[in-house]
């Protein structure tokens, strides 16, 4: 065979592999780490899964700020349990991402250098106790909608992590809603605090689903690969439709004068999202981007001696045992 012929047959081979791969996904088969996959499928998954993992651990930072100031022991244990879950969910997702052939250190490096993104909502400050309620109700609520859809993702380790995470997360939203429910039953000042939190978190929560479908160039490919099961706009609509009645139930007003029930589509119409703000925050100019990364990097650096000491201890034990055996 000539060189050109070899090249042709190689391209032919990889084309047929790719066709088989697409057919497997179309049949709803799951892809496992050692299966053949197109390089772009691997890279896209590393990007999305690690972004998801980073969001879990960075998302704990705004809440961690409130542990010592929780108003009662009941609230404190609930918040601690929630944060513990978030960090655990980060670990599930990092491990699932590592099955695609990238190391934990590389993933952290990408986060710390800003190469990898995390959900932009965590770049907003949590300024009052009511924010703990709004975050649980809205931010976790939005995350759950997104994650329930992802339980049917095509990549096995990702789908399995999502199933476990969804199961554990059901209490997060309820504890947040309970916080706001309690505040709305309290003094005028407490009611105002609850409304203020909703006012500040509502729009960033809608942004969590990402750009509109016509501005999201990767959606088509991600839907085809079943890395996404519903489009950004579909998920956002679902969130609005289920959250509006929840706000009404506790006497809070959604800060959107264009919000109106649309009988024809059996869903709410809602106002325009400020996408300039969204892109500003994504690009690093949100209220807390620098603060979050500083806290994250500082925690990582301050933990270095602990990781080193544990490893040194393990190695020492191992050599002791070896010497004993001799």
């Amino acid at each position: 065979m000539s060189e050109a012929q070899i090249k042709d047959s190689r391209t032919e081979h990889s084309r047929s592999l790719e066709a088989q791969f697409e057919a497997r996904i179309a049949r709803d088969e799951k892809i496992e780490p050692k299966d053949w996959m197109p390089e772009k499928y691997r890279k896209t998954h590393i990007r999305q899964m690690s972004q998801h993992a980073h969001s879990e651990i960075v998302g704990a930072l705004p809440e961690g700020n409130w542990i010592t100031r929780a108003p009662s022991l009941r609230r404190k244990v609930a918040l601690l349990a929630k944060i513990q879950d978030e960090i655990g969910h980060g670990l599930y997702l990092y491990s699932a991402t590592e099955t695609l052939g990238i190391t934990r250190n590389e993933l952290f490096e990408q986060l710390h250098t800003g190469k990898a993104k995390y959900s932009s909502i965590f770049n907003y400050p949590a300024v009052t106790w009511a924010d703990m309620g709004a975050i649980g109700w809205l931010v976790d609520g939005a995350a759950i909608i997104n994650q329930v859809a992802l339980c049917g993702a095509s990549f096995g380790p990702y789908a399995r992590a999502m199933v476990r995470i969804c199961k554990e997360e059901s209490f997060h939203q309820r504890q947040g809603y309970e916080i706001l429910l309690t505040l709305t039953k309290g003094t005028q000042e407490q009611k105002d605090m609850a409304q203020d939190a909703l006012n500040r978190w509502w729009w960033p929560s809608l942004m969590m689903f990402g750009p509109t479908d016509d501005e999201s160039p990767n959606t088509a490919q991600s839907m085809k690969w079943k890395l996404k099961r519903k489009t950004n706009d579909e998920l956002r609509q679902q969130f609005v439709d289920q959250t509006v009645p929840q706000a009404e139930l506790i006497g809070l007003t959604i800060p959107d004068s264009d919000l109106k029930w649309n009988e024809t589509k059996k869903g709410y119409n809602f106002g325009d999202i400020n996408w300039d703000e969204f892109w500003q925050v994504v690009k690093g100019h949100g209220p807390c981007n620098k603060e979050r990364m500083k806290a994250r990097i500082s925690a990582w650096n301050k933990g270095q001696w602990v990781r080193d000491a544990a490893m040194a201890h393990a190695e020492k034990q191992q050599s002791k045992n070896l010497n004993k055996a001799v």
């Binding site: 609930a78 209490f171 309820r174 139930l249």
Partner: peptide
């Protein structure tokens, strides 16, 4: 640690999707 479970939180019965 009962507070790790959703049933620990008291919400109105009318609430849906939570």
């Amino acid at each position: 640690k009962v507070y790790r479970h959703p049933t620990f939180y008291d919400l109105p019965d009318e609430i849906k999707h939570m």
